[in-house]
């Protein structure tokens, strides 16, 4: 994904000064806020592009499904395996399902889902809208009296905001299955007992904060991808930059949001 920035030409060029970078950062912060406001202004006015939102949800799911299944399962399996020795020191292997479930529900599932989706979905949104901008397809929509912002941006942002929480739930499920595989082979725990132990330590706050995270991450991925693509610079290089920028910015923001939401959830525990 870094190919644009690490090409020899770019490496040789001297970057802008720190001051210029800072002022750029503030300008983009202002611009992206304007973009978000515009989303809220247009997304909830009729006509609702329900068909297009559904199609984009499907795209989001399809694009990340395989990788999420794989990563989720492996994460659950490895996490359980690696945690066992520490618990075994206290003779507390029976707590393993509870530990795994807390780790996955509270932290891992939304985060893994969001990072993968940022890479798979965010980048393709950035590239797609970027190339539409560059080849004047967005202008063409504009002059034919259709609102490209609503049709292209609002639908994609809504779609990621809806799809990421669903995917995140699915990630939690496969990760816990991974955990089960390990627990079952080592401790011989039965399937029903495992799930009972999984749900036992989880509180209402856990579910809500996990869901909130996934929603916020989904929104972030959609907004950042669309913003990068919609305002991408002319030229094919602009498309690459839009895709790259979509991933890097979204990942950064996801980590910041993770910290914030964990803090806020802490007040309710």
């Amino acid at each position: 994904m870094d190919s644009v920035n690490s090409s020899p030409v770019h490496a040789a060029k001297k970057g802008p000064s720190i001051k210029a970078r800072l002022s750029n950062a503030f300008v983009s912060l202002y611009e992206i806020n304007k973009f978000i406001l515009r989303f809220f202004k247009e997304a909830f006015l009729p006509p609702f592009e329900i068909k297009e939102v559904m199609r984009q949800c499907y795209e989001t799911g399809v694009r990340s499904f395989t990788l999420i299944t794989f990563t989720g399962f492996i994460t659950g399996l490895i996490f359980t395996k690696q945690s066992r020795p520490s618990l075994a020191n206290f003779g507390a292997q029976s707590w393993l399902p509870s530990l795994v479930s807390i780790a996955i529900m509270r932290a891992l599932a939304p985060l893994i889902t969001a990072l993968i989706a940022a890479g798979k979905v965010g980048s393709s949104i950035g590239a797609e809208l970027g190339s539409m901008r560059v080849t004047e397809q967005i202008d063409a929509m504009e002059v034919s009296g259709t609102k490209p912002f609503k049709y292209l941006v609002c639908t994609r942002v809504l779609a990621t905001t809806i799809a990421i929480p669903i995917l995140s739930t699915y990630t939690a499920f496969v990760a816990l299955l991974g955990g089960y595989l390990n627990v079952a082979t080592n401790e011989g725990t039965s399937y029903t007992t495992y799930w009972e132990q999984v749900f036992e330590p989880l509180t209402f706050v856990d579910f809500v904060s996990s869901l909130a995270k996934a929603i916020v991450f989904g929104f972030t991925i959609g907004i950042v991808g669309c913003y990068q693509g919609y305002f991408s610079n002319k030229g094919t290089e602009g498309v690459g930059k839009a895709a790259n920028g979509a991933v890097v910015t979204a990942m950064f923001m996801i980590f910041v949001e993770e910290i914030l939401i964990v803090q806020i959830a802490g007040w309710f525990r």
Partner: peptide, 9 residues
Amino acid sequence: FQNSALYDS
């Protein structure tokens, strides 16, 4: 448009 600008999807 100069370059047609067809929706390529």
